[in-house]
């Protein structure tokens, strides 16, 4: 999904010279619709199926998307050159690329909006209730199916925003999708499924680990340490660092 968004951003930029950051919202909106529809049509019949069956389904969808992109855009990397691509700011002794700064700010904005939504908006609370207790949510009259589709759409929208942000920094290739999916997985499970502060903490932890490992060992081996952390977390705290204890 992320690569879809990244390609969308690239295409929009290449065709119309639209800034990816400005396009963040429309792209997120479009992906929301795609995610919503996909959940209702493809995934909803699978809610009651065993976990591995659902997992295979997602794998199938991912394979189709990634390789369709490969067919359409070819295997070469594509990039965006924004007008401020070569600007940089000096923050005290640090020099920061303008693109990275803008991208970082945008990411923080999206994350806080999401956090606020789940904490305060009634809809956000309803979604959390569904995740907590499926039957309970049904009993108090929530339209669980719609909420599932909604949260899937929301997830897709966030990924869309993330994709639009990251094209500023990274060139796009189709296999990037699975790589980011894996990274997201590692982060979320390390931090704790269903915990937003956990995801944040996981992100920082994994990011720091990779950076440190890249500094002290060789940069190409940095992901090894991320996976090592994942293994340790799975073994000793399978619910994640910030996750609630599983019953």
């Amino acid at each position: 999904m992320m690569t879809v968004a990244m390609y969308l951003a690239v295409v929009l930029f290449a065709r119309f010279h639209l800034d990816p950051l400005l396009m963040m919202l429309p792209i997120a909106g479009l992906l929301f619709i795609i995610g919503y529809v996909m959940q209702l049509v493809v995934i909803n019949p699978f809610i009651a199926r065993p976990e591995h069956s659902q997992f295979m389904l997602m794998v199938a969808v991912a394979i189709i998307i990634v390789n369709s992109l490969l067919i359409i855009f070819g295997p070469d990397a594509q990039a965006v050159q924004a007008s401020y691509s070569f600007d940089s700011f000096a923050l005290g002794p640090l020099i920061v690329d303008a693109t990275k700064l803008y991208a970082g700010l945008a990411a923080i904005l999206v994350a806080s909006a999401l956090f606020a939504f789940f904490r305060f908006a009634p809809l956000g609370k309803a979604i959390r209730a569904c995740a907590d207790n499926y039957t309970g949510a049904l009993v108090i009259g929530l339209d669980v199916k719609k909420l599932y589709a909604l949260s899937f759409g929301l997830g897709a929208a966030c990924v869309g925003a993330a994709g639009a942000i990251i094209v500023l920094i990274v060139d796009v290739t189709p296999p990037l999708g699975p790589a980011y999916t894996l990274l997201a997985f590692v982060i979320v499970i390390t931090g704790g499924l269903g915990s937003m502060p956990g995801a944040l903490l996981g992100g920082v932890l994994i990011g720091l680990t990779e950076a440190m490992a890249g500094l002290f060992f060789t940069p190409s081996a940095k992901s090894m340490f991320a996976f090592a952390i994942l293994v340790l977390v799975l073994l000793f705290r399978p619910q994640g660092i910030m996750g609630r204890k599983l019953s």
């Binding site: 295979m56 389904l57 394979i63 189709i64």
Partner: peptide, 17 residues
């Protein structure tokens, strides 16, 4: 190059569903 994999994906999707 991707056609084969798309086919894999579609097969998997259909069978799983």
């Amino acid at each position: 190059p991707g056609a084969k994999r798309v086919f894999y994906g579609v097969c998997l999707l259909l069978v799983v569903m």
